[in-house]
Write a protein that binds this DNA or RNA. Sequence first.
DNA 1: CTGGCTGCAAATCTTTTGCATCCTG
DNA 2: CAGGATGCAAAAGATTTGCAGCCAG
Lengths: 132, 132
Amino acid sequence: MEKYKDIGLKLTPQRLAILDYLDGNKEHPSAEDIYKAVSKRFPTMSFATVYNTLETLRQKGGVLELTIDPAKKRFDPNTEPHHHLICVGCKKILDIHGSYRLPLPDEKREGFELIGNHIEFYGLCPKCKKGR
Amino acid sequence: MEKYKDIGLKLTPQRLAILDYLDGNKEHPSAEDIYKAVSKRFPTMSFATVYNTLETLRQKGGVLELTIDPAKKRFDPNTEPHHHLICVGCKKILDIHGSYRLPLPDEKREGFELIGNHIEFYGLCPKCKKGR
DNA sequence: CTGGCTGCAAATCTTTTGCATCCTG
DNA sequence: CAGGATGCAAAAGATTTGCAGCCAG
C-alpha cells in the first residue's frame, strides 16, 4: 500500500478498497474481477468508479494496463519492469522478472526512438497441459 | 495471395476482396479498417463477413490476431514469427524481423511448457517525436 | 468550502450471433 | 445440390460518459 500513498490521489473509502485489493495481487485482474471482489465489501461500488480509479492510477503510474487478453483489459499493480508468461489455454499470467538485453539495430527502427520493451512468453500451464 | 490458396477456404468474391486487401499489408489493420477498405469495392459487405473471414483465417493460420491495441483487435497477415515496434503516440506498428534467443530458466516457469514468445518494442515514431 | 469523486443509467464501441437467403465446389 | 457463406439486424460485452449529489482535503 505504501506505493500508492501520496501520488496525488484523493483517498476515498472506495479507492482504498480497490488499492487494498490490488496491492500485491499477482492475478492480473480485469476491471470486472476488481469490481466483483470489491463489491463484496462495498455493495454500492459501481463500474464507473472502478474504471475511473484505474484510469487515474494508470496516469499516475500506479498500475499497468495489459493488452494481453483480446477480450478485455487486464491490470497489473506491479509497475516494475517485468515480462509475462501467458498460458494459451486458461490465460493465466505469470510475472517474469529479470532483464533481457534486446538490441534493435538502427536500420530496423525507421527513425523510431526506442523507449522500452515487453516480452510475452507463451506456454501451457500444468493444468492445461494435462487437459490435452 | 499464393499463401491463401487452398488452405481450405471457400473462395467467395467477398473473401477474395478481403484477402486481396490483406496480402502484403503492413498496416496491421483492425476489423473496421478492413471493413472500410473492402466496402468501397463491395458496398454490401457486412461486418459479420469480415469477422467471420478473419476468424476462419486465424484458425487456419492465415492471419495473426494482435492484442497490442487495448481498444480493438488488429490483424497481421504476416504469419512468419516476428516482433513489433509500436509507437506509443499514434499506435503505428512496425514489423521487426530477426530472432531473439530468450532463455527462460526452469525455476521461473512454475511447470509451464514453453511454446514461444513475442516482443513488443515501444517507441516514438518520427512524426510523434516532433509533436512533443 | 470546493473540486474532485461516486453511483446510476444511458450511451458508445467492438465483436458476436440468429436466421433466412445465396452460391461455391 | 448441400453445406458453408453472406448480410442484415439484434444482442452481447466491455468501457465510457453525463450528471446530480456527496465528501476528503
